[in-house]
Design a protein around this nucleic acid. Structure first.
Length: 436
RNA sequence: GUGGCUAUGGUGUAAUGGCAGCACGAGGGACUGUGGCUCCCUCAGAGCGGGUUCGAGUCCCGUUAGCCACCCCA
């Protein structure tokens, strides 16, 4: 009988054509990756808590107009990348990012009246209908924070340092923090107008992308990768002083000073402009060269007008988000180690021992000891091989000999040493051995 | 969204239009109560749909998916 089963399992059916596959741009996160992911998440939680952030879990579904209002009707995300759901009269959207929803929740739950400063963190899936690429999925996870209620540049530096600390904590190195300022809404508006006037006559010299961007988001011409576009922009000799008001100029200087003060390495980069309307003043991007074209591990910035835009009293706010799958890509190529629990593998020989083994395994697991057994009725040799393949640190052997004496053989796989332990002491012994 | 490249066992790969091979892996055995090393055996494959051809993994068209660059962005 056992032979038949073995035969059947070693001759599986021919591969069948797949009836279904995961939808374009989505992917399954399998146990190994999920473990790394959870490790990243739990490390981040510790730091969020240390920095005074509390978790907020907002719905994946929001009103479509919330995003149009916050991200801007001309932004690429709104125009081309939203998953829209129509249901009766309602126009809903799968959230393409979390900030809008968090601010909505902040206002809806009266946090603006509860506390001068509210700090939230979140972790969850976002959706954008882009053409998939490495590091660019249609469903992906964000890990981020929002600090709402202050214009203090100390907060900008703190948020950036939090992002920096998280990366270091999860063992990622070689990233680069690029920082820039867009100025307040007024500065942005004036700068945009000025750019349009400056560039209008030269527009025909720009690439077709830039010509199209001119109306949609004129700031984008500044960070075009095309060499000739870059030359024209460089020729304008744009200076921060030319478009920043005094307040914004000083704010940015204070942010940089605070970063230096706490020893965060950064790079000033006028090319960081961001494509979401709500950004003002400080914006930053954290990139990693191992990622290819989608090289941003995370990004963020101030959005001092968003709370007012969504119906609250004007209040300064800043946040950032990491692309979790991108963290995963980098941490995998840097082989960031995940601490795995030691495995105890139980081998029983014979029916009686198997019955006793079931109880034993139950007790071990109740005690939180990662333990497993062989389900295929393998020979002791086969079971040992399996224990080895699974990376068991210790093996318990329960055969007729041991059973008679009420003992279990406890074997250390690394040293090869083994000794008999009383059955009633085995949970304790395993705990002791795993710790040491 | 635009342009391009790719698709062969579970994984990584090979083969002038002519017998689908190798490695890893998985299962079993050599060793009947002791794993790792070694040796032996076994298992398992052309994304999908058309076309050209005596003959297609190989050429052509379509499709799906992934990847690369752009775009966008985390």
């Amino acid at each position: 009988m056992a032979l038949d089963i073995a035969k059947a399992t070693s001759h599986p059916f021919r591969k069948m054509p797949l009836l279904f596959q995961s939808v374009r741009g989505t992917k399954d996160i399998l146990p190994n990756d999920a473990e790394i992911l959870h490790d990243i998440e739990s490390q981040a939680r510790i730091l969020f808590s240390a920095y005074g952030y509390g978790e907020i879990i907002t719905p994946i579904l929001e009103e479509r107009d919330l995003f149009i209002r916050s991200l801007g009707k001309d932004s690429e995300v709104i125009n081309k990348q939203m998953f829209i759901i129509e249901r009766g009269q309602d126009l809903l959207a799968l959230r393409p990012e979390a900030t809008a929803g968090v601010i909505r929740a902040y206002l809806e739950n009266n946090f603006n009246h509860i506390d001068a400063l509210s700090k939230f963190y979140y972790f969850g899936p976002m959706f954008r209908a882009e053409r998939p690429q490495k590091g660019r999925l249609r469903q992906f996870n964000h890990l981020g924070v929002e600090a709402i209620g202050s214009l203090n540049p100390l907060l900008d530096a703190e948020v950036i340092s939090l992002a920096d600390t998280i990366l270091r904590k999860i063992g990622i190195s070689g990233f680069k923090i690029k920082i820039n300022t867009l100025g307040c809404a007024n500065d942005k508006k004036k700068f945009g107008e000025k750019l349009r006037i400056l560039l209008k006559s030269k527009l025909s010299l720009f690439c077709s992308d830039c010509q199209e961007r001119f109306n949609r988001n004129v700031f984008r011409l500044i960070d075009c990768k095309n060499a000739s576009c870059r030359n024209i922009i460089a020729g304008l000799k744009l200076k921060r002083q030319d478009y920043l008001c005094k307040d914004c100029f000083e704010h940015f200087a204070a942010v940089l000073e605070n970063l230096k003060n706490i020893g965060i390495e950064y790079e000033e980069s006028p090319q960081i402009v961001r494509g979401l309307d709500y950004y003002t003043r400080t914006v930053f991007e954290i990139t990693h060269s191992s990622l290819g074209a989608q090289d941003a591990l995370g990004a963020g910035g101030r959005y001092d007008n968003l709370v007012a835009e969504l119906g609250g009293a004007p209040s300064g706010a800043i946040g950032f988000a990491f692309g979790v799958e991108r963290l995963l890509l980098v941490s995998k190529c840097q082989s960031v180690k995940v601490s795995k629990k030691d495995l105890v593998f139980l081998i029983t020989l014979g029916k009686e021992a198997e019955k006793e083994g079931v109880k034993l395994l139950h007790n071990l697991r109740q005690a939180g000891i990662k333990s497993d057994t062989d389900y295929e009725n393998r020979s002791l040799k086969g079971a040992m091989r399996r224990a080895n393949d699974l990376g068991a640190k210790h093996v318990l052997i329960l055969g007729e000999n041991e059973l008679k004496k009420n003992m279990v053989m406890l074997k250390d796989m690394k040293s090869g040493e083994q000794r008999e332990v009383k059955i009633e002491n085995i949970v304790y012994e395993c705990q002791r051995v795993i710790v040491s």
